[in-house]
Design a protein around this nucleic acid. Structure first.
Length: 302
DNA sequence: TTCTAACCGCACCATCGTTC
DNA sequence: GAACGATGGTGCGGTTAGAA
């Protein structure tokens, strides 16, 4: 199956996204395992955030085991089919605001015109599926878009546009720098790596060494190091450090913990070393980062 | 593909001085 | 007093080569 699309070159400054629909597909979580949704073709650009999953998705001719936190980015002309159970946010977007489609009557299963395929370096870089580390950030953006779409404020068009642009930039940036990039899905040791990454994310405050991770993966330390580095693109130790710093960034901007407390919560044995590593990766000390970003994010309950 | 062994770089710690 | 920066020492883990 293939679709003939009109391709147009689009500069970054020409991107002016408009939300065609936003929804939370929560019913899927209760559907029987293996139940297949009707196959459909995507007419527009679609962003999907998986909030629960024990299922998978077929996109074009590939089957992906989707998991919580995965973000799926579909382009016009792709065939897709969901295999339950999973629940997700779905946002359909008119990238250039020029399709003339109305959000009031928009439905993904309706026969309709294809949106032009935009040839743009940012859009090309975003992979079909990947797993950003910071799910809270994804949730915050998707949730903001959904709320604004359902109960629009006076500045809804501006808010939706800003959030979609933010999402696109976030996806672009993460897909460029992501710790768990697309290549991991191609690894024959995907299940073992997935287990290890979950283990790391659940134990960031603990001391972790290569041996611990290789035991989780049930692979010899040496071989595990090789597989992990090939699949993820960085060494396990580097991955742990970056994950810890990612958690630290969230705690810095969204809690009132001191730098020393955050250092401990993120698995650094002392605050000076935490500051040293933080600055090395971010070019800012923890305190400078907190002051710079403190107004950007909503507060978490401690 | 997996393991062992050996080497070497660097992650990490400890400490002290400085700044706010 | 809290936080950061700089520095030096050390042990461990990453890397590599070679073998099974």
């Amino acid at each position: 199956m293939s679709v003939m699309l009109k391709k147009i070159n689009v500069k970054n400054e020409e991107i002016a996204p408009r939300v065609l629909t936003a929804a939370l597909f929560y019913q899927g979580a209760n559907m029987p395992k293996g139940y297949k949704l009707q196959e459909r073709v995507t007419y527009d650009y679609e962003f999907e955030l998986i909030v629960y999953s024990n299922g998978s998705q077929i996109i074009d001719d590939k089957c992906y085991n989707v998991k919580q936190g995965d973000i799926i980015f579909r382009k016009p002309g792709q065939y897709t089919q969901g295999i339950m159970p999973y629940s997700c946010y779905l946002i359909c977007v008119d990238i250039l605001s020029n399709t003339g489609k109305s959000p009031k009557s928009y439905y993904v299963y309706n026969d309709q015109d294809y949106q032009n395929y935009c040839v743009n370096p940012i859009l090309e870089k975003i992979p079909t599926i990947f797993h950003p580390l910071n799910m809270e950030r994804s949730l915050y953006i998707f949730d903001s878009i959904l709320k604004e779409f359902i109960t629009p404020s006076p500045a809804a068009d501006l808010s939706l546009k800003a959030n979609i642009l933010n999402l696109m930039y976030y996806l672009y940036q993460d897909s460029t720098e992501s710790l768990v990039n697309n290549t991991m899905y191609l690894s024959p040791h995907y299940c073992a790596l997935k287990k290890v990454i979950e283990y790391i994310n659940n134990n960031l405050e603990q001391k972790m060494v290569l041996n611990d991770l290789s035991k989780v993966a049930n692979i010899s330390p040496h071989h595990f190091h090789k597989i992990f580095t090939n699949a993820v693109g960085i060494t396990p130790n580097e991955f742990i450090t970056r994950s810890r710093l990612d958690k630290a960034k969230t705690l810095l901007t969204r809690t009132s913990y001191s730098v020393a407390e955050i250092a401990v919560l993120c698995g650094f044995e002392n605050a000076p070393y935490f500051s040293y590593v933080f600055k090395k990766y971010n070019s800012l000390t923890p305190l400078e980062y907190k002051k710079k970003h403190i107004f950007d994010a909503p507060t978490l309950t401690e």
